[in-house]
C-alpha cells in the first residue's frame, strides 16, 4: 500500500480528534461532561462531512465517497422510517385497527373501512418486485396516474392557464389622466406610472412573442419570424434571470456552510 493515502488518512484522523477534544471543552455551563463530549463529536463530525463533500471540488477522493454514501444511506433510511411513522402510524393505523393503535401508542380515531383501500393499493404496488405478479402493480399505478391527473387538471387549467391569460390582459395606459398629467408627474420609480405602462406593455409583448416562438404550424418568416425572434430573446432573458437566481441560491448555501465552519466550528468570525 502506498504511503500517501495512509499519511493523509492519519492526518485527517488526528485533526478530527484534536477538534473533538477542543470542541468538547466549549460546551455551555450546566451540561454534563457526557453531553459536552457528544456535542463536540457531532460538531466536529458535521464539519468533517462538510469538508469531505467540498473536497470534491478539487478532485474525487475517498473522503467525498464516504460522505456521499453516508448521506445516501442515512437519507434513504430517514425517509423510510419517516414514511412509516407519519403515514402508516399517524394516518392509517388509527382508522383500521385499535390493537395497532395501542401498540404504537397513537389515539384510535374510528373504524373507517375505506382506509383499507390505500394499503391494498400499496401492496399491489410492491407486487412489482414479484416476477409473476408484476402486472398487478399497474392497477395501483393506474389509480395514482388517474387521480393525480383528475385532481390536477382543473387546478392547473385554472391557475396556470385561465388565470394567467387573465393576468396578461393589462391596460396599456395605467391611471391615464392625459399627457399633461403624465409629464408633470413623470417619475422613474418602480411603482410610477411610466414604469407601470412600460412593464405592462413588455408583459403583453413578451407573452405573445413567447407563445409565437412555440408555434410549430407556421414557418417563422417575416413579421411572424420577427415576433418569434423577440420571443426567443424574452426566453433567453428569463433563462438568464433563472440562472442568476440559481447562482444566488447556490452561493447562499455556500455562505451558510462557510458560516457554520468559520463560526460554529472554528469560531473566528468577527463582530
Amino acid at each position: 500500500m502506498r504511503k500517501g493515502p495512509i499519511i493523509i488518512t492519519a492526518a485527517v484522523a488526528l485533526f478530527f480528534v484534536i477538534s473533538w477534544i477542543i470542541k468538547s471543552g466549549g460546551a455551555p455551563e450546566g451540561s454534563s461532561s457526557y453531553d459536552a463530549i457528544a456535542e463536540g463529536f457531532w460538531l466536529t463530525f458535521a464539519a468533517f462531512l462538510t469538508l469531505a463533500i467540498l473536497s470534491f471540488l478539487y478532485k474525487d477522493n475517498p473522503f467525498y465517497k464516504f460522505a456521499e454514501h453516508l448521506y445516501v444511506g442515512v437519507s434513504a433510511a430517514y425517509w423510510m422510517s419517516l414514511g412509516f411513522w407519519t403515514t402508516l402510524v399517524a394516518n392509517l393505523f388509527p382508522r383500521i385497527s385499535m390493537t395497532l393503535s395501542e401498540w404504537f401508542q397513537v389515539e384510535f380515531i374510528s373504524y373507517q373501512y375505506h382506509f383499507w383501500v390505500p394499503p391494498i393499493l400499496g401492496v399491489l404496488l410492491l407486487m412489482r418486485l414479484s416476477p409473476k405478479g408484476g402486472w398487478l402493480s399497474r392497477w395501483a399505478l393506474a389509480f395514482i396516474v388517474g387521480t393525480t391527473a383528475g385532481l390536477n387538471l382543473p387546478r392547473f387549467l385554472r391557475s396556470d392557464f385561465i388565470e394567467q391569460i387573465s393576468s396578461t390582459m393589462l391596460p396599456i395606459l395605467v391611471n391615464w389622466q392625459g399627457f399633461g398629467d403624465f409629464f408633470t408627474n413623470f417619475s422613474l420609480s418602480a411603482s410610477g406610472q411610466f414604469v407601470s405602462i412600460v412593464s405592462n406593455f413588455l408583459v403583453v409583448l413578451g407573452v405573445l412573442c413567447g407563445i409565437i416562438y412555440f408555434f410549430f404550424s407556421k414557418e417563422h418568416k417575416g413579421a411572424f419570424g420577427a415576433a418569434s425572434r423577440f420571443g426567443i430573446w424574452v426566453l433567453m432573458v428569463t433563462f438568464g434571470a433563472s440562472f442568476g437566481y440559481t447562482v444566488m441560491g447556490r452561493i447562499s448555501l455556500l455562505v451558510g456552510r462557510l458560516t457554520f465552519l468559520l463560526d460554529d466550528w472554528l469560531g473566528i468570525i468577527s463582530g
Partner: peptide, 30 residues
C-alpha cells in the same frame, strides 16, 4: 394552486432562489 386560487386566500410566498423565476408569473394577481 390548491389554496390561494380556489379559496380566494391572499398568498405571499417566500422562495428559494432557484424557483423564484417560476413563481414570478403569479405576481401580482395570484
Amino acid at each position: 394552486l390548491f389554496i390561494g386560487d380556489p379559496g380566494d386566500v391572499p398568498i405571499a410566498p417566500g422562495l428559494a432562489a432557484v424557483v423564484a423565476p417560476l413563481i414570478y408569473p403569479y405576481y401580482p394577481k395570484q
